[in-house]
Every structure is written in C-alpha cells, then in structure tokens.
C-alpha cells in the first residue's frame, strides 16, 4: 500500500512538472517580447488580451495551423525525429531539480522534487549534453547548407562550453562535499556560494549563456549570416518544439545558477515561503538573460572559440585550484 501511494505521488509530480514545463514558455515568450519592446521604447504586444498576455496563445494557434513543410531531399525520419530529440533532454533534466524541500499536505509529507539523486549535478550536465543530438539531426536532415553550418557551429559551441561549465561547478561540489542538489542548497543555508565562488559563478553564467544559445553567443541561429541556423527548414509545430526546448534550457540554466550559487530557496532578510523565494530568484535570472539579449551584439565565431578555450577553461581550472587551497 505504501509503495502504491508513493508511486502515485511520483506519477502526479511528474505529470504536474511536465504540464508546467509545457506551459512555462508561454509567459516567457510574452515576457521576452515585452522586455524587447520596452528596451526599444516600444510597448510590445498589446492587442490580444490584457497587455497582450494572450499573444503567445494566438501565436501557438498560428503555428499549429501552419503547413508542415518537409524539404524534398531531406532525410524524413531524422527530420521528424530532431525536434523531439532536442525536446526530451530539457524535460529529463527536471527529474533531478529540487524546487524546495517538502510540504505537508493532509498530514502526508510531499517532497518538492521528483528524485534526490546523489549524482544529481552530474546527471543534469550529462543529460543536458544530449541536447546536441537534436541540433545535429535537425541540421543534417534538413539537407540545406545554412542548417548544416548552423548545426556544426552549435555542436562546436556546445561541446567547447560544456567543459568550462563542468569545471566551474567543481568548486561548488568541493565546498558542499556532495553532488546532490538538495545537499548543495542546504550547504548554503548561511552563506550563499556566490560569496566563495564569484569566479565560478561568472564562468558558469557565461558558459550557461552559450549553452542556452542566447545572445551574445547565439551563433547557432545567427539570422544575419545563417538564415536561422539549424532550424532554417523547420516550420509550424516542429519549429515551436525547438523554441520550447530553447526556453527550457534557459530556464534550466537560470535554475542551476540559483541552486548552485544563490542559495536555492533560502531567502535573506524577508521571510517568504521557500518556493516563492526560489521563483523570484529564477525570474531575476531569466530577466537578466533577456536583458542581455537586447543589449549585446553577437560574438564572432573565432571570438567565441577564444573565449571558450583560452579564457574560460584556464579560469575554471584556476578556480578549482583556488578553491582547493581555500579549503585546505
């Protein structure tokens, strides 16, 4: 009986998180367009719903009704597979992400995470790395030069920035003596790791920008030189799957920044419920991502590689050394 209840609870949690993840890009696209508008002294969407709140719904309906084009010479199986392949890892990542410790509902303790893995961080980095396959498949199967070039660039970018990202996290692991995200957050109860790891945070944040393919590192879909990168040939619902996965990666990076460096759901000064603190911090990071997008131009490809290999990688190694000395 206990086992059945536990299984049902986990199932409900999985469904709730999956539904939330499908819905979350709707307010995020609205937010992005509003921020873009106001930074450029425009209003952004205003006509559908209150201040354009329903605009993403209208856009979604439009994408659903669009013609689903598959190019003539495309590899049809891979072409259809790619959006799904790129959509699965961002969802799978959320298995290991805690949103809070636990709440008691009707005398039953419900934890606010699906699973507290003892290798949670490793799992997240590994699964997030699988997202490259969607991009490779999409670019290759489209049989178009822009898509192929875009996907090649993306692969190189994602692979080279995964290394500093992984290294920058090692400092946090050394401080908290654990790879479980729950333990990492609990280790920050008094002092957030941003105090001990400013360099680590900087590397993680920059590498995260590159992983999420946001400006200034959005070479994958550089409109100016590549059409739209790996999803040039995609339209309608398949295109929106790519967009969905992109927004989820951004959300994941924001959540990881908060969990690893900004004390997760532990608040300061103002006593708010833990999930609200968590949401506020994640929202702030998402805002910063969007703010960056409408401030900076795009890096050139060689600059991107220089930053990844010649700046971030040595810096992250130095950070590990520094943390080691600090602990010792």
């Amino acid at each position: 009986m206990e086992l059945i209840i536990a299984a049902i609870v986990i199932l409900i949690k999985v469904i709730v998180i999956a539904v939330i993840l499908f819905i979350v890009p709707i307010p995020l696209t609205w937010m992005e367009r509003k921020i873009a508008g106001h930074i450029q002294q425009r209003l952004g969407p205003m006509r559908v719903g209150w201040h354009g709140l329903l605009q993403p719904v209208a856009d979604g309906l439009k994408l659903l009704t669009k013609e689903d084009i598959i190019p003539d010479q495309a590899d049809r199986l891979l072409f259809k597979m790619a959006p799904l392949v790129s959509l699965v890892p961002p969802f799978a990542v959320f298995v290991a992400i805690p949103f809070g410790e636990s709440v008691s509902v009707m005398g039953y303790e419900i934890s606010l995470y699906i699973s507290d893995m003892n290798v949670g961080l490793l799992y997240i980095l590994a699964v997030a790395g699988l997202e490259i396959y969607g991009v490779i498949f999409g670019g290759w199967a489209s049989n178009s030069k822009y898509a192929l070039l875009g996907s090649l660039r993306t692969c190189a970018q994602l692979i080279s920035y995964e290394i500093p990202m992984g290294f920058s996290v090692i400092g946090v692991i050394m401080l908290s003596h654990s790879m479980s995200l729950l333990d990492i957050v609990n280790a920050q109860q008094d002092i957030w790791f941003i105090v001990y790891q400013p360099l680590g945070f900087f590397i993680f944040f920059v590498a995260g920008l590159a992983e999420a393919q946001r400006i200034p590192f959005d070479l994958a879909e550089a409109e100016g030189d590549l059409g739209a990168g790996f999803h040039t040939e995609y339209s309608g619902m398949r295109f929106s799957f790519f967009m969905l996965s992109e927004y989820l990666v951004m959300l994941t990076i924001s959540i990881l920044c908060v969990l690893l460096f900004f004390g997760g759901w532990h608040g300061v000064l103002i006593p708010l419920p833990a999930p609200i603190w968590f949401a506020l911090k994640v929202g702030l990071f998402i805002y910063i991502f969007m703010w960056f997008r409408f401030t900076f131009p795009r890096y050139r490809y060689d600059q991107l590689m220089n930053i990844g290999w010649k700046v971030l990688l040595p810096l992250s190694l130095f950070n590990i050394l520094l943390t080691g000395i600090f602990i010792f």
């Binding site: 921020i35 106001h38 930074i39 002294q41 425009r42 703010w291 960056f292 409408f294 401030t295």
Partner: peptide
C-alpha cells in the same frame, strides 16, 4: 555601461 543604458531605456516612457 551598455546594460545600464538599456536598463534606463527599459523604464523610460514608450513612444508608441
């Protein structure tokens, strides 16, 4: 500096 500039514009009045 660039971020500060866009932040200032973000909270200025729109011209629409």
């Amino acid at each position: 500096g660039g971020l500060a500039l866009t932040m200032k514009y973000m909270f200025s009045r729109t011209v629409t």
